[in-house]
Design a protein around this nucleic acid. Sequence first.
DNA 1: ATACCATACCTATTGAAAATAGGTATGGAT
DNA 2: ATCCATACCTATTTTCAATAGGTATGGTAT
Lengths: 112, 112
Amino acid sequence: MAASPNFMTGVPELLVLRLLQDREMYGYEIVAAVAEATGQVVAPKEGVIYPLLHALEQEGLLRAQRRPVGGRIRVYYGLTSKGVRRLFDLSDDWSRMARAIQHVLKGPTHAI
Amino acid sequence: MAASPNFMTGVPELLVLRLLQDREMYGYEIVAAVAEATGQVVAPKEGVIYPLLHALEQEGLLRAQRRPVGGRIRVYYGLTSKGVRRLFDLSDDWSRMARAIQHVLKGPTHAI
DNA sequence: ATACCATACCTATTGAAAATAGGTATGGAT
DNA sequence: ATCCATACCTATTTTCAATAGGTATGGTAT
């Protein structure tokens, strides 16, 4: 039903890139890690994360590596240098945006 | 071309409601006010603002009032009490989200 | 042994919302 | 008389999160 709820656009991408900056992770792990890291405030399901990972890999921001672990296959993702640059850009965008909005919200209730 | 760029979803609505909390404004004025208030960081054009105003009015969050000013007609919008409640809800949502993301971004680069 | 749940991957469809790119009309300034 | 700023509007496109599935394996409980 709900499509892109408030303030979510671009957030999964930003968080995934940020978490992968710390260490390589596989998809199923990322789903849990995003939710954990944000205290469940942001908790995109697999239907969001997997297509995102594929898109980011296609864009050359992530590098995928299939590793058999305990008879199962996990696809580990790591940041490319291009991915690092995108992370910085997105972080900057987000910071500017957040500061601007914060400013308006806290601004005087008595107009300009 | 671009559809819903990063972090913008719900932002025009939040900012419009916030600005109208201070005083009644008309559409064309709001377009400029949003850009001004955010230092051009967020600057939705008329194609975003007008449909948004109509949707918010339809939802009962805004009350519209047509006023002839200098031979021209301006449509002034004001917050309803329902609109005020929505503003509070959205502000809360945004704050929680912003705090969570900030936390992840600033978090240790050495993983969990 | 068998049923069941967690793990681990995947995709097609839907819905919402911003951006683009227009269009109409009036008033004032050059 | 022309042109720009004001002031309203809408149809179409594009993107992306969300929903709601589906497949397969390993381990645990009955």
